[in-house]
Design a protein around this nucleic acid. Structure first.
Lengths: 158, 158
DNA sequence: TCGTCCTCATTCTTGCGCTTATGGTCGACA
DNA sequence: TGTCGACCATAAGCGCAAGAATGAGGACGA
């Protein structure tokens, strides 16, 4: 597996993938970059890091590079539903449950959410509790909070 | 479990049992007696060792003290069949298989035979191959051979 | 005498199914 | 606010059952 680290304002992001697709984008501990770009780094990983950089600058609201996620049927449905939430907006776990026609599977949605390996791209951070609380985030609640505020500050006027 | 060692001409025999019945009589390695008679030794174990001594002297052909064996239904049938073979005589594995009305279970008889824990009392040593070979014995083939010759030399004239 | 195949209860090994515990929830109620 | 019960997919823990391997044999052919 090829790896490439991107240094974001809120920590190192490790990008993992094959020659053709990105399979994992995760915040990792520490503040040192271990995997830098070299002659063997697949172009897709470089593209990903560039788009992430644009995202953190507030310039990019939508991503477009090849990625794939693997999981159970249920998880895929949840993750696909997540991508329908627009930039800077939020939805509740129940909204997702309803969207995939399994209204009572709110907790299962939470679990599937936590299994997502494509941070930021699949916007887990836009899912909050029905009461407005953040409730949880694999990368840490403070990052979830930061990401939401970041998106709101760069929201396009309509 | 109470234990008592008996020193036979062909090695130490370990007698194991409760206060009332003997449950195991096995040849063990080494030539030193570890468990000797003391005030706590159940009478049944002492009786057993006495009868074994008589057997090894050629004086006893039939045993009579309380013992019990545990095993599957099949094993019990095999072991019961074994006890019908008279002193100094032999039978084949097939004979036993036939006796328990399971003629083709010759190998299974061999396996059950090997699981017997009451050496000498249940005369595994009297079972030999159809071709006359000894084929096997948990305590070692040389002991099987010795026991058979021993019994033949003390066989009662009829 | 040696090798091959047949046969049987047991034990060991796997794998599947069921049960239980666990979460990034929600809603009602106090 | 805090507590509590309900609801859902996973993961992990168990139990049981089917399959493979084993062994103290026997019959047969080379």
């Amino acid at each position: 597996m090829n790896k490439l680290d991107y240094k974001s304002p809120i920590g190192i992001v490790e990008i993992v993938g094959t020659e053709e697709v990105v399979s994992s984008i995760m915040f990792i501990e520490g503040d040192e970059v271990s995997n830098t770009v070299n002659s063997e780094t697949p172009q897709v990983l470089v593209d990903c890091s560039i788009q992430l950089d644009e995202y953190f600058k507030g310039e990019r609201h939508v991503f477009s590079f090849p990625y794939n996620f693997e999981g159970t049927e249920f998880q895929k449905k949840v993750w696909n539903a997540l991508t329908t939430i627009p930039y800077a907006e939020t939805g509740s776990y129940k909204d997702i449950a309803t969207a995939i026609k399994n209204e009572k599977a709110v907790r299962a949605v939470g679990t599937a959410n936590g299994k997502n390996r494509l941070s930021i791209i699949i916007p887990c951070h836009r899912i909050i509790g029905s009461n407005g609380r953040l409730t949880g985030y694999a990368g840490g609640l403070w990052r979830k909070d930061w990401l939401l505020q970041h998106e709101r500050s760069f929201k396009r006027e309509e």
